[in-house]
Nucleic acid binder design. Structure first.
Lengths: 337, 337
DNA sequence: ACGGATTTTGCACGCGCGTGCAAGAAAAAA
DNA sequence: TTTTTTCTTGCACGCGCGTGCAAAATCCGT
C-alpha cells in the first residue's frame, strides 16, 4: 500500500473543493493563456500540489479533439541518422508542447497497420520518416483513414495529400556532382539505397543524369535493400572484387552516410586500399560518426533542426496553403573525397 | 475539400446504424476476445470499412483507465546503443499491442517535467532508459505523481518503488575482468561514463575492486560526462598525451561501446598506435558498429530483445510480486582485445 | 463613492467508449 | 417438440475535461 492509493484518481473536482473554486477554474489554472487571476491560479496550484493532481490529457484530447500528439512512424533503424532525426524532432516537438508517439514500422506489410495505429490514437499529425511508405500505401492510407496531417520528413514526395519537408535533393546532388567533377574524379560509382518511391528526381537519378550531361558517360550504380552499413560493405565487396585494379571506380558517391561508412570500411579493410587516395567516398547527412577521425567523411549536411522547427510551424499553423518546403543544406568537406 | 470531411468524426454509432446493430456490438467487433458471432463481426467490419471507422483509443483509455500506452523517457541520444534499444523495445511493445510515447529528456532539469508529461498522458507505465534519472528525481517522481509502473531499463536501480530490468553488471564485469587478466594485460585504464546514480555496484566500481583483489593494484580510471564517442576520444587524448610510452595502459576497459569506439579512434588516429597490439580496447553492449571491420570490438552483449520481452511480460502481469530481473549477457570476442 | 469598462468565474452539454449485468437468441439436450 | 444450457446482444452510467457564453467580481477615473 503506497501513499499513492489513498485515492485512486484525483480529478480537477477534488482540487476544486480543496481550493474553494469551481472545477473549470482548476483546469484554467493549468492552461497557458487562460483568463485567470494570478492569485486564484496560485491557490489552485497549491491545492493541486498537495493532492498530486495533474490534468488528464486523454480527457482533454477527447473533449477538444486536439491531442497535441503526433505519431512518428519509423523504420530503417540501422541508419544512424535516424537517431539524429529522432533527437531533433522530439526536441523541437517537446520544447513547443507536442508529444510524440513512436511507431516502429516493423516490416513492409506493417505500414498499413502502423498508420492505422496512429489513426486510432487520433493524433494531430502523422510524420513519416521511414522508407517503407510508397505511394500506394500513402494513397490507401489517406483514403481509408482520417489523417489531419500526413507529413513526410526528410524525403520528398509528390503525393498531393501529403506535406513534404525535405532537403532539395536536386540542388544538393548538383552540388555534390559539381564537387566530384571539380576534383577531377572520372569513374564514379553511385551507391544507392532501396527504391521504394517512384522518384524521378531521386538523388541517384539526378546524379546519373548530371554526370551523363557533363561527361557523356553513364556512371555505374548499385543499390542495397536498406540503409545499413553492413549491406553497403557487402555490395561494395562484391562489386569491386571481380574488377581489375584499373577498372575500379575512383570515387563512390553514396546516397547517405550510412552507406558511405560501410563503403569506407570495405575499401579500407577488405581491400586494404586508402581513402581517398585509391578510392574516394562521399556521403550525405553528416551523421556524428562522419566527423570521427576514422572516417573524416566528406558529405552534405541536412539542416535537420531547421526542418524540425518548420515541422512544428506546420503543426501550429492550421491554414490550408501549401506547406511543402524544400531546404538547402551545405557540403561539409573533410578528407574522404 | 477532401473525401474525408464528408463527416467530421465517424463514431461507433454511425457504424452501428449502417450495420443494423447496437453501438456496443460495433466496439465488440474490434475487441480481440469479445463474445461476438463471426457473422455479425464481419457485418460490422464491412460497415466500418465503408465508413472508414477506427475505434477511438482516447475514449477507450478514458473509460477503461487502461491505455496500452507506455512512456519511454530517453536522453543520451549520442550513444548509438540507444537506437538499438529503441528498436527492440518498440518492436516488442508494438508486436504485443502496446504503443510508445517517446519523451526526449532534454536536459538534467527536464527530468521532472518529462515524468510529469508521461503522467498527464496517463500511461500504463513509464520506462526510463536515460541516465539523467538519479534517485532523488525518482523519489520525488514517485511521491508527487501517480505512476502505475516505473521501469528502469538496462540499468540497475536500488529504488524500491521501481522495477529494474537490466544485465547483471557484477557478473558481466567479473567476466570481463577475468578475460582481461587471462589475456595477460597488466595496466588497465577504466573509461567510465557519467555517474548519476549512487551505484556501489556499478561496472567501474566492480572492475576496480576485482582488479585490486586479484593484483593488489588499483587501476586508473577516468570518466566523461556523457556516453559520447567524441568525448571519449578527447579524454583518452588528454589522458595519454602526457604519458611516457611505457607508462601507457595496455588496455582500455570501457563502460560501453560508445566510449570504446571513441577510444579506438583516438588511439589509432591521434596517436598512430595499433589496436590491440599497442593498446587493446574492450567495450560493453555490442552495438552494430562494434562488428564492423573498422573496430572488431571485443565486448559484452546485452540480451536486449529478451529484456524487452520481459518488460512486456511485466506490463501484462499486474501481480504485485517483485519484478526486478537481472539478465546474463555474453562476451563477444573479436580483435580489439 | 459611483457608473461603466474590464477581468474573472461558473456552468450545461457533449466528446466516444467500457463495464457488468440482464434480456434475448441460438444451440444442445431431453 | 420442449427444456436447458450456452452464446450473443443491448443498455445505463460514468470516465475527466473543453467550449462558449452569461453572471459575478474587480477595476478605473471622476
Amino acid at each position: 500500500m503506497s501513499a499513492s492509493d489513498l485515492q485512486a484518481n484525483i480529478t480537477a473536482d477534488d482540487v476544486a473543493v480543496l481550493a474553494g473554486v469551481s472545477r473549470w477554474t482548476v483546469n484554467r489554472a493549468f492552461k497557458n493563456n487562460a483568463s485567470i487571476s494570478p492569485a486564484t491560479r496560485e491557490k489552485v496550484m497549491k491545492a493541486a500540489q498537495t493532492l498530486g493532481y495533474v490534468p488528464d490529457l486523454r480527457a482533454a484530447a477527447l473533449a477538444s479533439d486536439r491531442s497535441n500528439l503526433v505519431a512518428l512512424l519509423v523504420d530503417d533503424f540501422n541508419n544512424p541518422h535516424k537517431l539524429v532525426m529522432l533527437e531533433r524532432l522530439t526536441r523541437a516537438l517537446r520544447t513547443r508542447g507536442w508529444d510524440t508517439l513512436l511507431v516502429n514500422t516493423l516490416d513492409r506489410e506493417d505500414a498499413g497497420p502502423a498508420l492505422m495505429n496512429a489513426s486510432q490514437r487520433r493524433v494531430d499529425a502523422t510524420i513519416l520518416i521511414g522508407i517503407q511508405f510508397d505511394d500506394e500505401v500513402l494513397a490507401t492510407a489517406h483514403s481509408a483513414r482520417r489523417f489531419k496531417k500526413l507529413i513526410i520528413f526528410a524525403r520528398t514526395s509528390q503525393n498531393p495529400d501529403t506535406i513534404s519537408i525535405a532537403v532539395d535533393d536536386v540542388a544538393a546532388t548538383r552540388e555534390i556532382a559539381q564537387y566530384v567533377m571539380r576534383r577531377g574524379y572520372k569513374r564514379p560509382l553511385y551507391l544507392a539505397g532501396p527504391r521504394t518511391v517512384s522518384a524521378h528526381l531521386s538523388r541517384k537519378e539526378t546524379f546519373v543524369a548530371l554526370w551523363q550531361e557533363h561527361t557523356g558517360f553513364t556512371p555505374d550504380a548499385v543499390s542495397v535493400a536498406a540503409y545499413d552499413p553492413n549491406l553497403a560493405t557487402e555490395i561494395i565487396d562484391t562489386t569491386l572484387r571481380p574488377m581489375a585494379a584499373e577498372d575500379r571506380p575512383d570515387i563512390v558517391v553514396c546516397e547517405n552516410d550510412a552507406l558511405a561508412i560501410g563503403a569506407i570500411d570495405c575499401i579500407k579493410h577488405r581491400f586494404g586500399l586508402k581513402v581517398p587516395q585509391d578510392i574516394a567516398v562521399i556521403g550525405f547527412d553528416d551523421v556524428p560518426q562522419a566527423a570521427s577521425a576514422n572516417y573524416r567523411l566528406t558529405t552534405y549536411r541536412q539542416p535537420i533542426s531547421a526542418m524540425a522547427e518548420y515541422l512544428v510551424d506546420v503543426l501550429e499553423n492550421s491554414g490550408t496553403e501549401d506547406m511543402d518546403k524544400m531546404f538547402l543544406g551545405k557540403m561539409v568537406i573533410r578528407d574522404s573525397a
